[in-house]
Write a protein that binds this DNA or RNA. Sequence first.
DNA 1: GCGTATAACTTATCAGCGTTAAGTTATGGT
DNA 2: ACCATAACTTAACGCTGATAAGTTATACGC
Lengths: 211, 211
Amino acid sequence: MTTASDAKGRPHRAPRGEGDRLRVELLDAAERLLAEKGSIEAVSVRAVATAVGVTPPSIYLHFEDKDELFFEVCRRGFLDFGAGLAAALEGVEDPVEQVRALGRAYVRFGLERPEQYRILFGQKVAIPGSIETPDELPGMQAFQVLVDAIERGVEAGAFRDGDPVTMAIGLWATTHGYVTLTHFEEDAPDELPIGGALEDVLDQAIHGILA
Amino acid sequence: MTTASDAKGRPHRAPRGEGDRLRVELLDAAERLLAEKGSIEAVSVRAVATAVGVTPPSIYLHFEDKDELFFEVCRRGFLDFGAGLAAALEGVEDPVEQVRALGRAYVRFGLERPEQYRILFGQKVAIPGSIETPDELPGMQAFQVLVDAIERGVEAGAFRDGDPVTMAIGLWATTHGYVTLTHFEEDAPDELPIGGALEDVLDQAIHGILA
DNA sequence: GCGTATAACTTATCAGCGTTAAGTTATGGT
DNA sequence: ACCATAACTTAACGCTGATAAGTTATACGC
């Protein structure tokens, strides 16, 4: 077992210029293990390393530390999320309905992928020093999509005349809170009637910013 | 140092029936250290033990494990939370203003004690098996306070004619989401303009359920 | 006031964690 | 064919949460 292949026959050493191959494999493994275990603390650096057939210190050739590794995992996950939101806008013309569609898409993502959502939004992820502007923060573009939709609604006279960013914060807070509470409900011993209230909750939130 | 007193001269062994004295001291120390360090992971069992002048294994005579210790810390904190909500209602007659006051009190707690809030509402600590009904879940009574306030508002004709529980869910989701997002903002390198939007967000949410 | 059961706490130790320093080996340009 | 070095390993550090086994002080029955 001193020679270089794991169970899948993978040679341990990548060719010269392609050290990043291991980097990607580490991210894939970390993402998978994270979905399995459900929390960052439950996924050890050692587990990630052995999952791809490599020793733990190799990770530190590609990531500053464990935090950076999992931050990167989350950043990748946010790309899916953003894509889902963007897709929700397609074919919807009315700005109010666009906002409603975004809310539904947001909640759908949160409920269909609870583990991933919890990691992205519900858990404290250390932010590496390499990130300096808010634009680089994962999820920020997704927020901007919402702000833009509201802005269109304001210009169209559908929403009240106010700061779109503030309205977006309120809506984001509502949907995020709804998702989190539904997660909590699922973990709770008996259930609150939260799960079925989405449409009403969205109605209320949107009604709150109508003109 | 084999004999039994720490820096404060505290004898290490409690009298016969009063083993719970150490339990309380451990909870106090854990709460203080949690506030200092800002996260559970940063507070080791060893640190809690030595803070009260005791060895680490002593903790396990009073708590199942580290999770239970810190869940208990938060459960105590929740008594303050409930009291804060109740206090927020005092002197406020108008149901709409009562709901607004509850929202403010909720957010205030979430922002002043972020770690405690994260543990209680963020489902970061496993719920001990000893809890069996929702009523025992921390925060459930607080939710009922909100439902009752809304119900009064509905009866007074101030809020729309609908299910108070559904409206409460929407408002709870909004405040909870607002708190969570503000936590996220504080961890971020630069800031979103979330922190100062509370009053507007509350306005929107309440406006959404007005008659 | 003595004996003794046991509550209250300690000693010693475990396996696992994230991380680092130093060593090794395969690779590709010259 | 050489050799600089990218890519990875070996070995180890100090820390963590946790447990099993040992010790000591206390309070109650007699």
